[in-house]
Design a protein around this nucleic acid. Sequence first.
DNA 1: ACCCAGGGTCATA
DNA 2: TATGACCATGGG
Length: 204
Amino acid sequence: MSALATADLRGLYTELHVRNGAQGWWWPGHEPLEIALGAVLVQRSRWEQAASALTALRTRGLLDAAALAATEEDTLRELVRPAGFPAQKPRRLLALARWWRDRAPGAGDLDDAALRAELLAVDGIGPETADAIGLYCFSRPAFVCDEYARRLLRGKGHEVPGSYEAFRRALAPAVERAGFTVAELAELHGLIVEEGKLASSRRG
DNA sequence: ACCCAGGGTCATA
DNA sequence: TATGACCATGGG
């Protein structure tokens, strides 16, 4: 068991890149709002289900912050039902739409920590979703400390704290030392998720 | 029938 | 600060 601070993330990046190939722009989608909505919809769900919900929103012209924010929660509930959690996700999408309409236009004035804090204050956005949105929507540096990363580092003999923030803090020195660009951090998260999916499908 | 997925919130200690 | 219950749809 070794400390997370000593983890060789650059080596991990190279290893996954060689094994599974370049992910390119890994996130399925390019419009920032669509990416953010997808990040909420995919929570504890499969991407196919989040994608199905996103398609329903797109069909209704709701991949627009003002239009989405003006939509009835009951209407959203039917549209995003494939993503599960009908009592939570529609409300969270509305909260995100309001933030996006009111605050996202001025996000460029916020430093990385301030933007992260604002995202965390939105209902339904926890630390992992905040990091993913910061990274893929606002090009802010972040190592997404998801369950796949936890398993991967644990498998390499590292002691990984249970909570997200503790994990993030413990890994911060290693992230800093690796010197990733934002594009590399986006690529690395994709590499880790795809590797994690392969590993878990290998078990079943 | 059972387990789980690209988490977050809330209550509790 | 850190666990545990809960949420709910769809695939394997």
